[in-house]
Structure formats: C-alpha cells, structure tokens
Amino acid sequence: MLSIGKKKMEFDQILFYVFSFWFVVASLAMVFLRNAAKAVLFLILAFFSAASIWILLEAEFLAITLILVYVGAVMVLFLFIIKMLDIDKSALRAKFAGYLPLGLMVAAIVVVEMVMVLGYNQFGLEAVPEPARHAADYSNITVLALQLYTDYVYAFELAAVLLLIAIIAAITLAHRNETNRKSQSVSQQVNVKARDRMRLVLINSKNSGESDD
C-alpha cells in the first residue's frame, strides 16, 4: 500500500503515521470496549489524534475547535450522561457477537472498495501534488473568517438559529415539571379581579369595641 519504500521518511510523515496509528487504535478500542465510560475516554484520544492530523493539514482553527467543542463540551456531556444513567453493565453487549461477522464483512468490503477508488493511482502525489506550505505569517482563522462572514454569512446565521433550536429542544425534552417550585403564572396575574384581592367582612362593632379596651 505504501508507495514510498526507498526514500527516507520525512518528519511530517512519521508524525502522520504516529497520529494515524493512535487514531485507528483508539477508534477500535472505543468500538469494542464493554465499558461505556472507557469508550468515551478512547473517543477523546481519537479526537485528539484527528485534531493533530488536521493540524498537519494546516487547518489549525478547526483542530482547535474540535478539541474545544468536542472534547471540552460534547464528550464531557457524554460522560455526564453515562455516569448519570445507572446502566446495567451485564445486560449491555449481551448480543455483542451476533452482528459482528456481518459488520466486519460490510466494513471490509467498504474498505477494499474505497482503497480501490482512492488509491495512489487516482490521488497519489503524481496525480495531486502536495501544495507548498504557507508562510509563517499566514493566518488560517483570518482566511476562514473572511469567507465565513461574506460568502457564507447566511449559512452562518442559519447555524446560529439551529443551535438556538437545539438548546430549546433539549431543554423542553429533558425538563420535568417540578411540584414544589414557586413560579409565576402570568395569565392568573392578568385575569385577576378586584374582588379576588380584597374581601370585605362585616364584623360586629360591639364585640370589637370591647376587645380594644
């Protein structure tokens, strides 16, 4: 599979293979581990390796975003849910091996097909030469921001609305009506009548005069 056998490996090539190795190993561990919490930790390792590979591809902003958003927020959310739900570990993965042969067969076929399509004849260094590295003062964030706020500003705002809808939907789904909580009922406040506020009670004046002394 490797076309470069004679030439000495360059440093970025060594980095690529190290990161790829840990990416694949962590992904396999995530898929085949029985413990969901350990699987999350291995997925974090896989995301870190992916971010390193993205930095090799000069996509620094997205690499940092992957670590901040995914490892920092989404994976912590996963860990929180796993620890919050008391999952019966013995029941999990009981039928683990049942679908494994079918899954492995499908995956092997897909990998072989993709390698045939994406091989070195079509996308090797001869077909797609590697572009020159950017200068040291090149800013990936500036380039992305220039496009994001001009050409893709409509999509950007749509993404913001989508996140807002996701917040509302998540809160609405997970919210449970609390019985012992004091809350404000606006409709009752608006519809209140004067007689609900003050009640006139007729009191016998003779009895009240005696008690005042």
Binding site: S27, V31, F32, A97, G103, V110, M114, G119
Partner: peptide, 23 residues
Amino acid sequence: ISLSDYLILSAVIFCIGLVGIFV
C-alpha cells in the same frame, strides 16, 4: 504524505464506526 493517505485513513475510520453501529 499524499492525499491518498488521508483518504484511506478516513475510510478506515469510517468503517470502524460502521462496525461499531453493527455490533
């Protein structure tokens, strides 16, 4: 590193995720 290396790597990761959904 050629483009092919990256594409094959992501194809492998994609299929590992696919197996995970199966099992």
